[in-house]
Deep mutational scan, measured.
Amino acid sequence: MATDAALRRLLRLHRTEIAVAVDSAFPLLHALADHDVVPEDKFQETLHLKEKEGCPQAFHALLSWLLTQDSTAILDFWRVLFKDYNLERYGRLQPILDSFPKDVDLSQPRKGRKPPAVPKALVPPPRLPTKRKASEEARAAAPAALTPRGTASPGSQLKAKPPKKPESSAEQQRLPLGNGIQTMSASVQRAVAMSSGDVPGARGAVEGILIQQVFESGGSKKCIQVGGEFYTPSKFEDSGSGKNKARSSSGPKPLVRAKGAQGAAPGGGEARLGQQGSVPAPLALPSDPQLHQKNEDECAVCRDGGELICCDGCPRAFHLACLSPPLREIPSGTWRCSSCLQATVQEVQPRAEEPRPQEPPVETPLPPGLRSAGEEVRGPPGEPLAGMDTTLVYKHLPAPPSAAPLPGLDSSALHPLLCVGPEGQQNLAPGARCGVCGDGTDVLRCTHCAAAFHWRCHFPAGTSRPGTGLRCRSCSGDVTPAPVEGVLAPSPARLAPGPAKDDTASHEPALH
C-alpha cells in the first residue's frame, strides 16, 4: 500500500513536468492505449483535445483523470512512461527518471493478473537440437547421386540401376557391380574402391570401400567397409609401409569409374585409389579445392560414357583410347591431361624469361682521411668538412668512354686558381681547403699541381719545410723540376691526363 501511495503522490508531483515534456501524442498516448491504461473513449478524447488546445494541455488533463483511477493503472502508467522508446522521444523525461526514488519498484506484477504457477513436473524439458533432418536429407541425396545420367557406350558392359529405396527402410541396399565389389548404403556420403591386398588381414578377392557413415545421432565417422563389417581407420595404420605414394595433400579420389555407378572395369580391371599401398590413418579432407572437384561422367573428346580416367587438374575425364597418344593402361600417381600440362608450361616460361635485376654498384670503404676530388669540390665554400675520421664509401662506377685530351690552356685561363699578391707571391683563392683534413686555415699551394695542403698533414714525420718551391706529398717525388717562383700557373702540358701512381689516385688537379 505504501508503494501505491508513493506512486500516486509522484504522479501528482510530476504531472506538469510530464505534460510539458510530452510534445507529441505518439508514441506515449498510443502505448498507453495498447497496454489498456487508457480506454478507447479517453484516447479519442485526448486526441481531440490535443487538436484543440495543444499537446501539453491534453496530457495534463489525461494525467488528472489518471489520478482518479486505481493503483494498478497508475503503476502501469509509470512502466509505459519509462520505456526506452519514450525516453528517446521525450528527452525531458530523463530528469524525472533520475529523480525517481530508488525504493519504488516498478517491476512488480499487476494485482489480480498474476499467472498461475505451473508445477515443475509438468514443464517439459527442453529438446536438444538434433541433426536428424540433415541425416534424412543426406539419405535422400545419396540415391540421386547414384542414378545414371545416360546410357553407357556399346563397348562398356557395366550397366546398373540402383533400385529405389524407401527412406523408412534401415537395411542396406547393395548393387552387384562384379568382381566382388559392393556399394555402400544410402547413408554413405562418398565411396572409393580399395584393393584388398592393401588391407592387412583381408582374405580372398574381397575389396573394401572407404566410406563416411552418417549415424542417426547426427555425428559422422569415417571407416572402411569390408564385406558386411565396418573398420575404423586406426586398424589399417601401417607405419612400416615404404610404398606409400601419396598425392599432394591428398584424400582418396576415384580416378576410374563407370558411368552411372562406381566400380571396377569389366574384364577384371581393378579400380585404383589416388594413392597406392596401405590406407593412410588420417582421412581428413584435403585443403586443395581441386581434389574436391567432381569430374564429368562423359569423355571430353567423344562425349560418351564408359570407363573413364579423370584428370587431377580439371573436371574433365577421358577414354584411354581417346587420348593423344592413347594409353594402354592407367598410369600410377597423379595424372593430368594435356591442357593442364600446357597451362603449367605456359606459367613457367614467362618466369624464366623475366630479366634479372641489375646488381647495385659495389661499394668499397675508403680509409679515414681520404676523399675523392669530387667530394672536395662539392663541399660548401668557406666551411670545414665535419666528421673527417668517419669511413667514407667510394662507389665503383662504370668507366666513362675515352675522351680526347684536354686542349692547351693559356696562363690567363688559370687566373682564378691563384691570386698574385703585391710581391708576386701566389695566394690561395677563397674557399681553398686541405685535401686531407678539410680545413682551409693557413693552407699552402703546391707549386707543381696548384693543390691546397697543410705541410703537417702531408709530411707528418716532421720534415723541414723548404723556403721556396713548396710541393705536396703527391708531387714531391716527381722528377720534373719545380717552376720558378712567381709564375702564375704550371705549363698547360702538365694538365694533360697521364698515368698516375697508386698513392696519388685520389689527388687529381682540382679547380677552386
Score class of each variant (00 low, 15 high):
43 F>C: 02
69 Q>V: 01
22 V>N: 01
126 P>M: 02
37 V>K: 05
172 Q>N: 06
140 A>W: 15
56 P>Q: 07
91 G>Y: 15
247 R>F: 08
114 K>L: 10
99 S>C: 11
41 D>H: 00
144 A>I: 10
225 Q>Y: 00
145 A>V: 06
248 S>L: 11
127 R>T: 03
118 V>H: 15
254 P>R: 05
72 T>L: 08
133 K>A: 01
18 I>F: 02
199 V>L: 10
130 T>A: 15
163 P>H: 06
159 K>A: 04
167 E>W: 15
42 K>S: 02
32 L>A: 00
211 I>D: 08
200 P>S: 11
238 D>R: 03
40 E>C: 00
117 A>F: 10
241 S>E: 13
199 V>M: 12
95 P>G: 10
105 D>Y: 15
115 P>W: 03
181 I>S: 08
124 P>M: 15
225 Q>G: 05
109 P>F: 12
17 E>L: 02
211 I>C: 04
234 S>F: 14
156 S>A: 09
196 S>G: 09
269 G>N: 03
159 K>D: 06
40 E>P: 05
245 K>F: 15
88 E>S: 04
250 S>I: 11
261 A>F: 13
224 I>W: 11
214 V>E: 04
142 A>W: 13
269 G>R: 12
140 A>Q: 08
22 V>G: 01
255 L>F: 14
166 P>Q: 12
57 Q>L: 14
47 L>C: 00
161 K>M: 08
59 F>S: 03
45 E>F: 05
153 S>V: 08
162 P>Q: 15
65 W>S: 03
88 E>R: 15
52 K>G: 04
188 V>A: 05
57 Q>R: 06
30 H>M: 08
220 S>C: 13
91 G>V: 07
40 E>A: 00
221 K>G: 09
71 S>W: 01
97 L>P: 04
163 P>D: 01
64 S>P: 07
214 V>A: 06
105 D>S: 01
102 K>C: 09
201 G>N: 10
75 L>C: 06
123 V>C: 13
155 G>N: 02
107 S>H: 14
192 V>C: 08
62 L>W: 03
66 L>D: 01
121 A>W: 15
190 R>L: 03
233 P>S: 10
143 P>M: 10
99 S>N: 08
202 A>L: 09
135 S>R: 07
199 V>K: 07
222 K>G: 04
203 R>P: 10
177 L>S: 05
29 L>H: 01
72 T>Y: 03
120 K>S: 13
120 K>R: 13
246 A>I: 04
69 Q>Y: 04
170 A>C: 13
63 L>N: 02
122 L>M: 11
10 L>K: 00
21 A>M: 04
218 G>K: 08
23 D>W: 00
195 S>L: 02
189 Q>D: 06
218 G>Q: 00
176 P>I: 15
182 Q>M: 04
148 P>S: 13
105 D>C: 07
184 M>S: 04
169 S>K: 15
159 K>V: 11
73 A>Y: 05
54 G>V: 04
54 G>C: 02
38 V>T: 05
88 E>L: 08
272 R>V: 08
119 P>N: 10
255 L>H: 13
93 L>V: 02
232 T>E: 11
115 P>G: 07
218 G>Y: 06
234 S>G: 12
229 E>M: 02
221 K>R: 09
163 P>A: 03
98 D>C: 02
83 K>V: 01
170 A>D: 07
181 I>A: 04
143 P>L: 11
169 S>F: 15
223 C>L: 08
207 E>V: 01
265 A>C: 07
192 V>W: 05
194 M>W: 03
139 R>Y: 13
237 E>S: 07
98 D>N: 08
268 G>F: 14
235 K>H: 03
116 P>H: 12
83 K>G: 01
